Simulated scan of single mutants.
Amino acid sequence: MRKIINFFWRRKILLAALLIVIAYGIWSFIISPKKDVRLSYQVQKGTVAEELVLTGQVKAAEHAFLSFQSSGELAWLGVAEGEVVKKGQRLANLDTKIPYETFESAVAELRGTQASLDNVYDQVQGHATDESFAQRDLRTSAEVRRDKSYRALEIAKKNLSNLYLTAPFPGIVSSVTYPFTGIFIPLSQGVIEVVNPDSLYFEVSADQTEVAQLKNGVKVKIILDAYPSEEVDGVVSYVGYTPISGEVGTVYKVKIAFTEAYDLTKFRVGMGGDAKLILTEKENVLFAPPEFISSDATGKYIFVGPQKKKVYIETGIEGEDRVEIVSGISAGDTIYD
């Protein structure tokens, strides 16, 4: 019987302790009045910029996915992923045995028809003004055969060149679809991807209301998602004249060139980020953080001094974290939120 009584007493004590803890928490965080903590800021002069923030990604002006203009067996592969290549360097080729034989036959055929034509020219020499029909027929037939063989050689030469892939610009091999030989490559199948890291730029899309504010030369601060604490300087180098096809609404391409050296080991094609386009910028002007500025029916105002006097102000350009103060307060004034 005593054990049962003790058990119930323990439960009552635990329940009472729990209620006390809950009551204290309610009092501390809800009922008890909070202290009036207000942030302050001393007005100063500096640079204020009106910015337009657009999302985009890194691209390369020199970026190509190379493919053969003919089908055939991959006979030679001379590069691997990550390898640096020069402009015009041979990268790979298909089996050239039969096309090369055709090319050699065309060379021999041209030599034969050219020799025949030279022989005919010797026969009709000195008859430029009194050439007979028979002589004209002989000369023309020889010229036609020579011309046909020349065109056949050019075709054979083109067909042979279609079996080779060369680097269109200096850069890095970023991908190789088939890193081995002996496989059949269909016509126009992408084989080797080459990108020139020195040609990187940042591209964003702007709608018709935004693009009206942009022009070549606008300064830009670029922040990549991969490196959120780093800013890279840039400048608008191209604003599209026609809308991007396939987009919802009227959207234009805007290219931003990097104006400072970037780390080739860090930047990659396809990296996303934000571009802060500086539309207007003023130096050595009064400014205040936007969170200290309020407004009512009369206008914009700010709380000044320890007494938090309400002072109406006139503002100028507005940036993301700074607002220009044209009149109403002076440098050194302390304002409160």
Rank of each mutant, 00 (worst) to 15 (best):
E73K: 14
K157Y: 07
K221A: 09
Q42F: 04
N196I: 12
P99H: 06
I172H: 05
G249M: 11
E62A: 15
D321N: 14
T242Y: 11
L160A: 04
G190L: 10
Y150S: 04
P243L: 07
A49S: 12
K59S: 10
A106C: 03
T129M: 12
K266T: 03
E50R: 07
Q57V: 01
N6I: 12
K219H: 08
M1D: 13
F68Y: 12
I172T: 14
S105W: 03
V326G: 03
I26W: 13
A17D: 08
Q135T: 07
V120D: 05
Y100R: 09
N162V: 03
V220N: 00
V251F: 03
T102I: 04
W76Q: 14
D147P: 00
I22W: 14
E230V: 13
K97N: 11
P186W: 12
V37F: 08
S149K: 05
V326C: 07
V218F: 06
V124Y: 09
G171A: 09
N119H: 12
F65K: 15
E318K: 10
Y262L: 13
Q189F: 13
T265F: 02
K3A: 14
F287E: 01
D122F: 10
G234H: 04
L160K: 02
Q135E: 15
L66S: 09
K3T: 13
I317Q: 01
L52K: 02
I293V: 15
Q42Y: 04
V43T: 08
F68P: 00
L110A: 04
P197G: 09
W9V: 13
I256S: 00
A226F: 06
A226E: 10
A115P: 03
R268K: 15
G82K: 02
V211H: 02
G72E: 11
E230P: 00
I30P: 07
I30W: 15
G78F: 05
R139C: 05
A152G: 04
L286D: 03
D130K: 09
A108N: 13
K219F: 04
D95Y: 09
Q307C: 01
F180P: 01
E131C: 03
V79Y: 02
D137K: 15
T96K: 12
Q135I: 06
V79L: 05
E231G: 05
Y238T: 00
A167W: 01
